[in-house]
Amino acid sequence: MEQAKNYLQMQKLLRPEQVKHSEYQAALYLLSTDAGLTDVAKRYISTEGINFSALKKATKGFDEPIRQAVDVAHNLFSYNSNCAVSPFDLSRMGYPMMDHMCNALFIAGDQYRVEVTQDKSGNWTLDLDSSRYEKNKQAQMFLEALSKEANLLEDMAMER
């Protein structure tokens, strides 16, 4: 998978501890969705971090969806950066960019983890581990069921 190779190329430019952070994973995930974007982005990634200001200037001639991906990656990486991409813009992206954007939100929220592995044939694959999200979802559903049961018991006690 091309995205897995792109992701690995950029990941190697960072310090190992940086790669563990969800902000870095979300940014690299979005920046790895397009080979041309990855080639440009690699020039602005170092052990010091990601220079999004320079990357945005360097991608001015790119198509709108790619520029939007850079803008969202920047905002997920640094929450106080200005992001011109609105929820409306996201809703109009279509496949596959909308999927990438949603996945990046989960990654930045530390709900998904990016895993790049190599299969027996030597092909790289990028997978998303959603186990943390699934655990959170199950816990929330359990708490909601408990709350409903508590409300039912309270209602029954009041009726007596």
Rank of each mutant, 00 (worst) to 15 (best):
E2N: 12
N6V: 02
N6D: 06
N6L: 04
Y7V: 07
Y7L: 07
L8Q: 14
Q11I: 03
Q11Y: 09
K12Q: 15
L13T: 03
L14I: 07
R15T: 09
R15M: 11
R15N: 09
E17A: 12
Q18Y: 05
Q18E: 07
H21F: 11
S22L: 01
Q25W: 10
A27V: 03
L30Q: 06
S32V: 01
D34E: 10
G36D: 15
G36K: 10
L37F: 01
T38G: 00
T38R: 05
D39C: 01
V40K: 14
K42Y: 00
R43E: 12
I45F: 06
I45C: 11
T47W: 03
T47Q: 14
T47E: 13
E48L: 02
A54E: 15
A54Q: 14
A54F: 07
L55Q: 05
K56H: 08
K57S: 13
K60H: 06
K60D: 06
K60Y: 05
F62S: 12
F62E: 10
D63S: 12
E64Q: 15
E64P: 00
E64F: 06
P65F: 07
I66V: 14
A69W: 00
A69Q: 15
V70K: 05
D71H: 09
H74W: 12
F77G: 03
F77V: 06
S78C: 08
Y79V: 11
N80F: 09
S81C: 02
C83M: 03
C83K: 02
A84I: 10
V85L: 05
V85R: 08
F88H: 13
L90T: 11
S91I: 02
R92Y: 01
M93R: 03
G94H: 06
M97S: 07
D99F: 02
M101C: 08
C102E: 10
N103H: 10
A104M: 05
L105D: 01
L105F: 15
A108N: 08
G109A: 15
Q111R: 14
V114P: 10
E115C: 07
E115D: 13
E115Q: 14
V116T: 08
V116C: 10
V116E: 04
T117F: 10
Q118L: 00
D119K: 04
G122P: 06
W124K: 06
T125A: 02
T125Q: 10
L126H: 00
L126Q: 06
D127R: 14
D127P: 00
L128Y: 15
D129T: 09
S130F: 05
S131R: 13
Y133A: 14
Y133C: 03
E134P: 00
E134K: 14
E134S: 05
E134W: 04
K135M: 05
K135D: 06
K137M: 11
A139C: 00
A139E: 12
M141T: 11
F142V: 01
F142K: 13
F142R: 08
A145W: 00
L146M: 13
L146K: 08
S147R: 11
E149L: 12
E149S: 09
A150H: 04
N151K: 14
E154K: 14
D155S: 13
A157Y: 09
E159R: 13
